[in-house]
Design a protein around this nucleic acid. Structure first.
Lengths: 156, 156
DNA sequence: CTTAATGCAAACCGTTTGCAGACCA
DNA sequence: TGGTCTGCAAACGGTTTGCATTAAG
């Protein structure tokens, strides 16, 4: 059984005086098993398979709690819905996204802080110092054309 | 008279078979005179001072057109509304934003490509090559604490 | 005179909220 | 048992759309 089930997350909830319910466990399990960037609705339908009675509002409320606890992270890919990603086990990892403006494909480039150095670490230090600003997290997206869509465009 | 009024933008509109109307001119003038990151509603009320009969839908439709023409750029600062910025005259400039999570203040760090080199140019080249992806524009935001809010927090 | 652009109001849609009932500690 | 949490449905708010009218070229 993965370590966070009934473990890490449950403990974090309890420390904060929050209750660990089957609904919350189901949502955390979905987030941790499905990789990628899920929308609230996608999570809702996924959890519905296990708990058919779940409500969409509960998913939103749980996601907000999970975000406050640092268990999930929000992303906005400008498609009209917020997307969520499970970050337990990679708390300090940095994400960089390449988003294709044609097909919407998202390439996730992730830095494992134990292995590699953040490629824009120096730039962050520079900005922190220049503006006396404490950077807590970053949201770095590059928009453009993926390989396939560029090939299709080139042929036209 | 600034060069874009009845000039650059008007020409760009005509080239595309689009009409240059007083409404569009008023919106462009507002965008170019008010610096910063305006929401559609802020633009709406600003233009209303000159054209009281303007409708909010027209502002949205015009902003979409301006975005397609590359005259404005969209930003999402996670406050629930899209923000727009006039980019004529700084087409190749890169923007980096520091956003305070307490007061919402946005520090805009802009690179003038004629004077300075993009601080994350190498990282972009690296990603482009690694994923065979053409980066057209970037959206780089750092969230954290500004000087004042950190001082307030420290005193507590 | 033709076609695009506008204003209005209603629709849209992701998200939030109020509340009565259910559940965890 | 007491305080959360949940599901439901209604509300919310930024954005979009349909349509009749107006205005640009």
């Amino acid at each position: 059984m993965p370590y966070w089930q009934g473990g890490g997350c449950r403990g974090r909830f309890r420390e904060c005086g929050l209750k660990w319910t089957q609904t919350r466990e189901a949502i955390v399990n979905t987030l941790s098993s499905k990789s990628g960037h899920l929308s609230a609705e996608e999570i809702f339908f996924e959890v519905k398979k296990v708990l058919p009675g779940i409500g969409l509002a509960t998913v939103y409320r749980t996601l907000e709690t999970l975000r406050e606890l640092g268990i999930v992270r929000e992303f906005d890919f400008k498609d009209g819905r917020t997307r969520y990603e499970f970050v337990v086990g990679k708390e300090n990892a940095e994400h960089y996204h390449l988003i294709c403006r044609i097909c919407g494909k998202i390439i996730d480039y992730e830095i494992n802080p134990h292995k590699e150095e953040d490629p824009i670490k120096d730039f962050k230090s520079f900005l922190s110092e220049k503006f006396n600003f404490s950077i807590e997290r970053s949201d770095v997206q590059f928009l453009g054309l993926c390989e396939k869509c560029r090939e299709i465009l080139d042929k036209k």
